[in-house]
Simulated scan of single mutants.
Amino acid sequence: MKVAYDAKTCIHAGNCVNSLPAVFKIVNEQFVIDPKRASEAEIRQTVASCPSGALQITDTDMP
């Protein structure tokens, strides 16, 4: 699974960082996503709760 982030759409509500800080974090002033740090279900739930839709799941195993 891959998570895409659209900085132009993001409203910086912080839901992702507050819900899964090991996955969604700021490193050197850059937004970083490390999907290996949580279960797929946890990540999907957090992405679904993004109020702006700036986070999207891309399933890498699909053609």
Rank of each mutant, 00 (worst) to 15 (best):
V47T: 07
L20A: 09
A7M: 06
E42W: 04
S19R: 07
Y5L: 02
V32M: 12
S39H: 07
E42C: 01
K8P: 03
A48N: 11
F31H: 08
K2W: 07
G53E: 03
C10G: 10
D6V: 00
E29K: 13
I57K: 05
Q30I: 11
L20I: 00
N28E: 15
V27A: 13
A41K: 15
R44C: 09
P51I: 00
A13W: 01
S19Q: 06
Q56K: 11
S19C: 02
P63M: 06
A22Y: 00
I33G: 09
R44A: 11
F24T: 01
C16H: 03
E29R: 10
C50W: 04
T58Y: 08
N28R: 15
A22Q: 07
A13D: 05
I33Q: 09
S39L: 07
S52V: 04
A7Y: 02
L55Q: 00
G53S: 08
G14T: 02
A54W: 01
T9M: 09
N18Y: 11
K36P: 06
A7H: 04
S52H: 00
Q45L: 10
M1A: 11
I11Y: 08
E40K: 12
A54L: 01
A4S: 14
Y5P: 08
V27Q: 15
A41I: 04
D59P: 09
Y5A: 09
V3R: 11
I57R: 13
